[in-house]
Design a protein around this nucleic acid. Structure first.
Lengths: 189, 189
DNA sequence: CCTACCGATCGGTAGG
DNA sequence: CCTACCGATCGGTAGG
């Protein structure tokens, strides 16, 4: 039984924020998750809001890093779209707590940090939109594709994955990506 | 200035639950929304949880009623799918608070009511799945369509509409439905 | 629908 | 990381 680190505290907070929401989680809950009292957390972090900020910003960074990697691979627009989908799914499945907190709890952030997160979301959405516009321009996708709306629809599908997908389901991760890509590519071609 | 009704209380609660979440809303907040004290609400309702139950169940009923109407129209599977999409969008845009609370706050329900809501969601999803299976069987959609996954993807798109669509946007409601249907039908045909 | 409360829980601090 | 606390706020009640 060794001492908990600051990272442990952030991780425990992320777990609970993802499961019960920011306002549904108390500092005592986070402490209990680590075998500590709520008051002991304040030697690691300045406050509850700071925990939320760190979890959400980590989620934002993970999604953006995945998008950057997908967009800088060389390959057809269709291949890059598949890489984007695979990257998004990987972030959700491998960093479920940060992803959920990023997607659902941004409204609990103070205005300044919420604005940063909204900007990060916009950047992410723009990454996908650019990919779609490229593909519509070079004939990979249908030329009349609306990249903005298509991007929104694709992200809607991707962001909901955590709500229904279970590893224990019939499809493994690659199959999941295949299915999402099959649906999405049929829609944009 | 006439007295508030029980329905006013439920509506005010729905507004705040949709905006800040159940745990982010206090009974005093709900009262303030109506110009009352928090304690005054207890002459209308038994408690905060009851308010959540009523808002969520109303959301569930609205979605199911829309789905039933869409499925019982006669027309091709494609026409019924369009009616389903239009119905879902109408519930979201005309009953935003109930829809959001139904979609996002079910986890704050006590276990018994949460189970009821999950069952309602399953029924709703089954309605769409049946429609898709019918269309795959009669040649309206591609025969290898997976109705379960396609249903999940379509609902993912529909359930996210409230997160980005503003009446003040470029597209009116009919255009919105057209765009969603265009994307979805391209994916399932 | 308000006044006047209740016990419980909240985020957070002082001091060790 | 705990002990011992703080003031504020929470959901809810009694009585009118």
């Amino acid at each position: 039984m060794t001492r908990n680190t600051r990272a442990d505290v952030v991780q425990a907070a992320g777990r609970l924020f993802a499961e019960r929401g920011y306002h549904g989680t108390s500092m005592r809950d986070v402490g209990r998750e680590l075998g500590l009292l709520g008051s002991s957390l304040y030697s690691h972090v300045a406050g509850k809001q700071q925990l939320l900020v760190e979890v959400v910003e980590r989620g934002a960074a993970l999604f953006q890093a995945a998008a950057d990697a997908a967009l800088h691979t060389d390959g057809s627009a269709q291949e890059r779209l598949r890489a984007f989908v695979a990257g998004h799914v990987a972030v959700i499945l491998d960093h479920l707590d940060e992803a959920r907190t990023f997607l659902n709890e941004a409204r609990a952030l103070d205005p300044a940090h919420r604005a940063r997160v909204i900007a990060a979301r916009d950047r992410y959405e723009t990454s996908l939109r650019t990919l779609l516009a490229d593909g519509a321009g070079d004939g990979s996708f249908r030329p009349d594709l609306d990249p903005k709306l298509a991007g929104i629809f694709i992200l809607s599908i991707l962001n909901a994955v955590d709500r229904w997908y279970r590893e224990t389901g019939p499809a493994d991760r690659t199959t999941l990506v295949d299915e999402v890509c099959g649906f999405v590519i049929a829609a944009v071609r």
